[in-house]
C-alpha cells in the first residue's frame, strides 16, 4: 500500500503492544509465580513447583467456591440466554409504542455501577427473603448477564432476511413451528455464543456476588477472603485457572460468532 504512513503505523503498533502488555503482563506474572516455589512473588525465581495447585486442589473451601461458581454460572447462562433471546426476538418481530423505551430498559443493567446494583439487589432480595443464598446470586447475575445475551442474539437476528419467517408461515408453519424450525436454527450460533459469554461474565463477577451471596460465596468472593487473611501464592494458582476457563469460554463464543459463511464450510 503506497498511502500508508510508516510513522503512524509504527506508533499504532507500539500502542497495541503496550495495551496488550498492560493487560497480559500481570496475568502472565501471576501465572509464572503460581508455578514458583517461593512464598513471596519476587525475583529471581525459585524452583518450579506445582505445590500451590496441589494446595488448592486439597482445599475444600476452594472447591466449595468453585462448585457455587459453576452452579451459578451454568444456571445464569441458561436463564440469561432465554431472557436475552426473548428480548431480542421481541425487538425483531414486533413494532409497538414505547419500543425504544423497552429496549433501553432491557439493555440498561450493564451501565449501572456494580456497587450500586449490588446494594440495590441486596436491599431488594433481603426484603423478599431471597438474600444470602445461591438463588440470590443467580437472580443478580441473571439481571446483569441478560443484556449481553440479548445484544448478541439481536445482532444475529438483524442479519436475518425478514422474509424467512413469513416464508415459513406461508409454507404451513405456525408461529411455534417457525420459532423452532427457522428462528432458533438461524440464531443458533449466537445462542451458543450468548451461553458462553454470560457464563464467563458470571464466573468473573465479584462485586454484586459479594453483596448478595452471604455464605454461599462464589470463587471471586472467596479469593477476596483469602487475600484479606493471608497473601499466598495459592491466589496466583486460582487466578490462573479462572483466567484459563474464562478465556476458553470467550474464545468458544468468538468462534461461534464468526461470519456465517465461514462457519458453514
Amino acid at each position: 500500500m503506497g498511502n500508508e504512513n510508516r510513522i503512524i503505523n509504527g506508533l499504532l503498533k507500539l500502542h497495541i503492544a503496550f495495551c496488550l502488555l498492560f493487560i497480559f503482563a500481570p496475568i502472565a506474572g501471576s501465572f509464572v509465580f503460581s508455578l514458583n516455589s517461593d512464598r513471596f512473588p519476587s525475583l529471581p525465581l525459585g524452583e518450579f513447583s506445582t505445590e500451590w495447585y496441589r494446595l488448592i486442589w486439597e482445599d475444600s473451601l476452594v472447591w466449595q467456591g468453585f462448585a457455587n461458581t459453576l452452579v451459578v454460572g451454568v444456571t445464569v447462562a441458561i436463564i440469561a440466554t432465554l431472557l436475552g433471546f426473548g428480548g431480542a426476538y421481541t425487538d425483531f418481530r414486533y413494532n409497538f409504542i414505547g419500543k425504544s423505551f423497552y429496549l433501553a430498559l432491557a439493555l440498561l443493567p450493564p451501565t449501572i455501577p456494580v456497587v450500586i446494583l449490588g446494594l440495590a439487589m441486596l436491599a431488594f432480595l433481603s426484603r423478599v427473603n431471597l438474600s444470602g443464598s445461591t438463588i440470590s446470586v443467580i437472580i443478580a447475575h441473571g439481571v446483569m448477564c441478560s443484556p449481553f445475551a440479548m445484544a448478541i442474539i439481536r445482532l444475529r437476528l438483524s442479519q436475518m432476511d425478514p422474509d424467512l419467517e413469513a416464508a415459513s408461515w406461508n409454507m404451513g408453519g405456525n408461529q411455534w413451528q417457525t420459532l423452532c424450525f427457522v428462528i432458533i436454527p438461524f440464531a443458533k450460533p449466537a445462542i451458543f455464543a450468548a451461553l458462553f459469554i454470560t457464563m464467563a461474565v458470571s464466573f468473573d463477577e465479584f462485586a454484586v456476588a459479594w453483596f448478595v451471596s452471604g455464605l454461599n460465596e462464589t470463587l471471586p468472593v472467596k479469593i477476596l477472603g483469602f487475600l484479606q487473611g493471608q497473601v499466598s501464592p495459592r491466589i496466583n494458582a486460582i487466578g490462573s485457572l479462572a483466567f484459563l476457563s474464562s478465556m476458553t469460554l470467550i474464545i468458544l463464543a468468538q468462534l461461534l460468532l464468526r461470519s456465517p459463511e465461514e462457519t458453514k464450510s
Partner: peptide, 30 residues
C-alpha cells in the same frame, strides 16, 4: 399457515441453514 397458497419470494427466502433437500421438504414437515 392454514391456507395452501405458497409464494415464491423476490428475495427467494430460502433457508440458509438447511440443505436444498431440507428446504424442499420444509412445507411437508410443517
Amino acid at each position: 399457515w392454514d391456507r395452501d397458497t405458497p409464494m415464491v419470494w423476490q428475495s427467494l427466502a430460502l433457508f440458509p441453514f438447511l440443505t436444498v433437500q431440507e428446504n424442499v421438504e420444509f412445507a411437508l414437515k410443517m
